[in-house]
């Protein structure tokens, strides 16, 4: 199976590994897991409250290479996007970009879920009404 250099690079030198201050009001954190393989992924976004643009994204993933590459790619894509644009990232985009085999598609699902969870966390903190917040009110 031939992989593009880019993909291998994401796997060998994952970008944006690390963490942001979880307590900060402009940082959203999402922790998700893929039970079938025991992977766990934390993804964080730091948003400029004035513009709504994601300035920084970090991740930390315990899991297989595909999960690491998926989250690395996701953080690359997040930077410079608005929070709403970020929600448009779909797992299939990641699958196509990385040519993930079927047995590893769940890794891309994990990355998509991590993005959603992080954005939701940010919105909740920033007081932006989201579904969950509305329901709780």
């Amino acid at each position: 199976m031939a992989y593009s250099d880019k993909v291998l690079d994401h796997y060998n030198n994952p970008r944006n590994v690390g963490s942001l201050d979880k307590g900060a009001s402009n940082v959203g954190t999402g922790i998700v897991g893929a039970p079938e393989c025991g992977d766990v992924m934390k993804l964080q976004v730091q948003v400029n409250p004035a513009t709504g643009i994601i300035e920084e994204a970090k991740f930390k993933t315990f899991g297989c290479g595909s999960a690491i590459a998926s989250s690395s790619l996701a953080t690359e894509w997040l930077k410079g996007k608005t929070v709403d644009q970020a929600l448009e990232i779909k797992n299939t985009d990641i699958v196509n970009e990385l040519s993930l085999p079927p047995v590893k598609i769940h890794c891309s699902v994990l990355a998509e879920d991590a993005i959603k969870a992080a954005i939701q966390d940010y919105k909740q903190k920033a007081g932006v009404p989201v579904e969950a917040a509305v329901q709780q009110a």
Partner: peptide, 20 residues
């Protein structure tokens, strides 16, 4: 094979992440 992350309770994920 295709479970979504939401099937896992967040407290468990947090715990596993910290352990890791």
């Amino acid at each position: 094979g295709e479970q979504r992350a939401k099937d896992v309770p967040p407290e468990l994920l947090e715990e596993v992440f910290e352990l890791n």
